[in-house]
Amino acid sequence: MRPHAEEFQQGGGKLVVVGNGWPAMAKSWARHVGFPQAVEVLTDPSRKAYDLAGFKRSRLLTLLNPRSVARWVRALLRGFRQGRTAGDAWQQGGALVVLPSGEVSYRYVSLGPGDHPGPAALLEALGKARRISALR
């Protein structure tokens, strides 16, 4: 996602990344990833936003999803090693596109590690959101 971060601003929106650890974890992670200034990094230690957004929290989804295992093996083969986990290991993520009115125009609920929409899908959803906003 990081190489595409500025495209969201150029597309008339903004990219916000929310995690679920403590602020110090978020700060350290954001520095490690090297997000540009345009990206807002926030954290939701209570995971209240995750719950309200409909994102799942499950050990089964995390551990036993065959797609998760396949993605993990592929990542390992490419030389990726996950660092120490900071945050809630069982919490699944997802993505939303939210209009200024608060209406959610796009929602993607992740079903396991590695299950997330690509930048192209998110940029397309942002374009639709801009068009909806312009009509109102």
């Binding site: 990344v17 929310v18 995690g19 660092g83 945050g87 939303l96």
Partner: peptide
């Protein structure tokens, strides 16, 4: 509030 936001919720840091 000012413009549409793409909000990505990550599983955890790391």
């Amino acid at each position: 509030r000012e413009k549409p936001a793409v909000v990505v919720f990550v599983r955890h840091y790391g």
